[in-house]
Nucleic acid binder design. Structure first.
Lengths: 225, 225
DNA sequence: CGACCATTTGATATGGATCAAGCGATGTGG
DNA sequence: CCACATCGCTTGATCCATATCAAATGGTCG
């Protein structure tokens, strides 16, 4: 059940994003087979190693998928935003855990239903393949970021998020510094330092810690090389 | 044209790998639409930014896909071995360049032919999606490696290669130390040091610089956590 | 045998981690 | 409405893993 606060925060967030970003992954009637569901901030959507019976399409909010290592390190493999589909990188079992970063609404869709629809409907199959290759390109981009220096990683992250959240040069990040750090393979201290460094170089402004204004995309792009 | 030396090296390599690894990505008659082609060591298969008109299925040899940064750094995004399909992470244009690591034979397949076959043949479409999700899982695994320390990356790399080349605990690496370094985001010196360190810990043996014997997989697995 | 290139080994430098405060929002109880 | 506790973020000081620079070794091909 949703609290009022949740509803408010979700609708506020949704209104900030442009319609195009919120579009479904599919135009096909897969939504008829989908169950809407809500996950409060920081709750688990699925665990690593569980049978991968469902896809989740993000309607609003944000999700992190991650692995915990024995020594306590956490590696975030991806963030999912409205329109994205969770569970594509999956065989029999989920290879990552997934948690809501903010209060999040999803459509839960049976994997088996998707697969059997794809078998019957070639246009749907094509769409499924297209979103999978897009996910693959994103994963490759993420890997490339991890080759780079700390300032480059942070600049690349900001550009990625501003592309995906799409709101003219002002981005409201849904995730904490710790989330960013675990996605970029850095510490929160380093992420913070790089942000202030970018601010001093007037590449960005930080009206609040989660709201980021991209003042000079060229500087950021030059950094990511 | 193939030199004798090339033929020899290819067949030697092929005999070392088990049949299962050399199987085609597809069981379907896509091969009928494919053109066999050979690329000598270190030649370009396709360049970044070129129109992505073809898939390439590796028959024998090995391929690296990579990006060059302005400052001369090279980032290897993936290695492709027999049975793998190149070009899945691609929209209109190739997002990476691809070069033969060793003399390599491929099947060249028109993208348009694959896409139209997938539209007509749902079993083929399913196979195409399956190889794409496998590629996605590999890309995620690669990203995870890049979070880790140098010894962990090298250990993880050796385990990945021994999985993919499959030959009981003795692996003939097709790629140079520089290739490994550019895949792991390390320098050749560090890769070399980590290998000698693993050798001293009797986790591996190095009969020659490219041939690696996995003496103790447990030590390696413990490292990658 | 000798030249060349890849790899290993050694010495030093540095970017980011770690350790340690300080600061600023947000919320809570008095 | 304000003191104050809490939590997330920023800033500062030091340390360490890996890069960088430099040289030695080894393997391959003429």
């Amino acid at each position: 059940m949703l609290t009022d606060a949740f509803e408010n925060s979700v609708s506020r967030f949704s209104m900030r994003t442009t319609p195009s970003v919120c579009e479904s992954a599919f135009t096909h009637p897969i939504r008829l087979m989908a169950t809407p569901m809500s996950f409060p901030r920081n709750t688990e959507i699925h665990g690593e190693g569980e049978p991968a019976d469902y896809f989740y399409e993000i309607v609003s909010g944000a999700v992190r998928s991650f692995k915990m290592l024995m020594d306590g390190r956490r590696q975030i493999g991806a963030f999912y935003l409205p329109g994205d589909l969770i569970g594509l990188d999956t065989g029999e079992e989920y290879t990552f855990s997934a948690e809501a970063v903010t209060n999040t609404k999803v459509l839960v869709i049976k994997r088996s239903a998707v697969i059997s629809l794809a078998a019957r409907d070639s246009e749907f199959a094509r769409q499924l393949w297209t979103v999978t290759t897009r996910e693959l390109r994103r994963a490759r981009l993420h890997a490339l970021l991890l080759f780079k220096s700390a300032p480059e990683r942070v600049a690349g992250f900001l550009l990625e998020m501003s592309d995906r959240i799409q709101s003219n040069d002002e981005v409201e990040l849904p995730m904490s510094r710790q989330d960013i750090a675990d996605y970029l393979g850095l510490t929160i201290e380093t992420v913070s330092r790089m942000l202030t460094q970018l601010e001093k170089a007037s590449a960005i402004a930080l009206p609040t810690s989660k709201r980021i204004v991209l003042r000079n995309r060229e500087v950021l792009k030059r950094l990511v090389a």
